[in-house]
């Protein structure tokens, strides 16, 4: 597959502080990519360099084969959605969506048709005469999305677009964004610090830490085969078992909470015994914290109607050698 978005040896320094340290990646047309990492890892800086708001210290950015590294933001034909909505407060919803089209010189008739098309896409048909302040945060962010994609940009950049919204809207809007993205086949770069968000909607994820890429891959790979200790601990829940906890296993090992069970399974070949220190009932899942000689281990089990567990119960944990992760540096 030819690369549609290609970043080579991208470096960004602010004074003596290097925040992006030679990043490389290439993505195909239509991919949904997440840049995931803690705050200050450089993910937002990369997005802003793709947008053209920051000038790279060195390196190149190519879109569809064209070197855009030194183009101004308004020459790049990209769309962007910001964390703070950034709708133009003096314009109606319709005027906001039409802005990019107007700037590009599209005739009024075509603009109106495109705005209606966009409003239908985001489920806000009939809202074109409203002003941003008359709408909820979720509605405003959908308008911002429509505004970004109306001029048919080559790339869609999403800068933590969901973090200002409340939990319920965040989940429904991210599904909506993904559905629209798939529909239009638009290559999208999504910046987030929320690993659940990244895993649920991305084709591939770039996990970043202090200016470097720690791992690049599909959510399944990153979760099940973390390349580094950082990825293993940052993405998802993880239990670390210090050397000596597992008999016959030298050195430290780690395991995901859902891979430990209270009953033997065909593949399990290791057991541990401990007492329940804490127990949270989350509905479909029950989360146990088990004390194994001073090491606390989290376990997720499915809800079991027949035998309710109690704090202080002694339980035997079953796990498989093949599920154990060895954490690198």
């Amino acid at each position: 597959m030819p690369a549609f978005l290609e970043v080579q040896n991208l470096v960004k320094s602010f004074g003596t502080n290097t925040v992006v340290k030679g990043v490389n990646f290439a993505f195909a047309k239509g991919e949904f990519i997440s840049l995931l990492g803690p705050s200050g890892c450089g993910k937002t800086t990369i997005l802003r360099m793709i947008a053209g708001f920051e000038r790279p210290t060195s390196g190149t950015i190519r879109v569809d084969g064209e070197d855009i590294t030194h183009l101004k933001p308004n020459q790049r034909q990209l769309g962007m959605v910001f964390q703070a909505y950034a709708l133009f407060p003096n314009m109606t919803v319709g005027e906001n969506i039409a802005f990019g089209l107007k700037v590009a010189g599209m005739p009024a008739e075509q603009r109106r048709a495109r705005v209606d098309e966009m409003l239908k896409l985001i489920g806000l048909l009939g809202f074109d005469k409203r002003y941003p302040y008359e709408m909820s945060g979720g509605q405003q962010q959908r308008v911002a999305l429509a505004r970004a994609i109306a001029p048919k940009p080559r790339l869609l950049l999403l800068d933590e677009p969901l973090s200002a919204l409340d939990a319920k809207i965040r989940v429904s809007l991210r599904e909506e964004i993904r559905a629209i993205q798939r529909d239009l086949g638009i290559t999208t770069v999504f910046v987030t610090h929320d690993q659940e968000e990244a895993m649920s909607i991305s084709d591939r994820i770039v996990v970043m830490n202090s200016g470097n890429i720690e791992q690049l891959g599909a959510a399944h790979d990153i979760y099940n085969r973390p390349a580094t200790r950082f990825v293993a601990t940052f993405v998802g829940q993880l239990n670390t078992l210090p050397a000596g906890v597992l008999a016959g296993t030298p050195g430290e090992r780690a395991i995901r909470p859902e891979l430990i069970s209270l009953a033997p399974r065909p593949e399990t070949d290791l057991t541990l015994t401990g007492t329940i220190a804490d127990l949270h009932f989350l509905g479909s899942v029950q989360r146990l914290r088990v004390d194994i000689g001073g090491t606390l281990v989290n376990i997720d089990t499915f809800n079991n109607q027949t035998s309710p567990l109690q704090r202080g119960d002694t339980v035997t944990l079953h796990l498989a050698q093949k599920d154990l992760l060895t954490l690198g540096a």
């Binding site: 947008a51 053209g52 708001f53 133009f88 802005f99 590009a104 970004a148």
Partner: peptide, 23 residues
């Protein structure tokens, strides 16, 4: 928030004059 509004307009292709005049 003139910073974000400016960036939002820039990425949509607006020039500096259009940003000051329209936004």
């Amino acid at each position: 928030d003139i910073g974000t509004l400016t960036e939002a307009a820039q990425i949509m292709g607006a020039s500096q004059v259009q940003i000051i005049g329209n936004i």
